[in-house]
């Protein structure tokens, strides 16, 4: 990872923040999004996060471990249940990590 690469990605992510959050504000109310685009945007964050989470939990070091011996996968599923029942991000992260450590310790 070169300095140039790191500063490039830092600026790229920061520009992505500015673009997504401020573009519609700057354009003002003259510009309306097509209904179909606005409808599909609603699904974008969930689908993006799902793709990232799924491939991160299902693989360990680029080897597919889609089974019940995968502590990370089980911890992720447990964390989802904790989120749905408690609606607390702190409980979800804490509970998921605790589950992960317990599963690693017993196996």
């Amino acid at each position: 990872m070169s300095e140039l690469y790191l500063w490039s990605v830092i600026l790229a992510i920061s520009f992505a923040t500015l673009l997504t959050r401020s573009l519609l504000h700057v354009l003002g109310e003259r510009v309306q999004l097509p209904a179909l685009v606005e409808a599909s945007l609603r699904f974008a964050p969930a689908c993006a996060m799902a793709a990232i989470v799924a491939s991160d939990l299902a693989y360990s070091h680029d080897v597919l471990e889609f089974n019940l011996a995968n502590a990370r996968l089980l911890a992720g599923l447990g964390a989802a249940l904790i989120q749905l029942t408690t609606r607390s991000m702190a409980a979800t992260i804490g509970g998921g990590m605790a589950l992960y450590w317990i599963l690693r310790w017993v196996s």
Binding site: P45, D56, A79, I93
Partner: peptide, 17 residues
């Protein structure tokens, strides 16, 4: 294995959706 916590934060945002 604390990097898992980053993924779990995404799970917390994702699950209710």
């Amino acid at each position: 294995g604390l990097e898992l916590a980053g993924t779990l934060a995404l799970v917390a945002l994702l699950a209710p959706l």
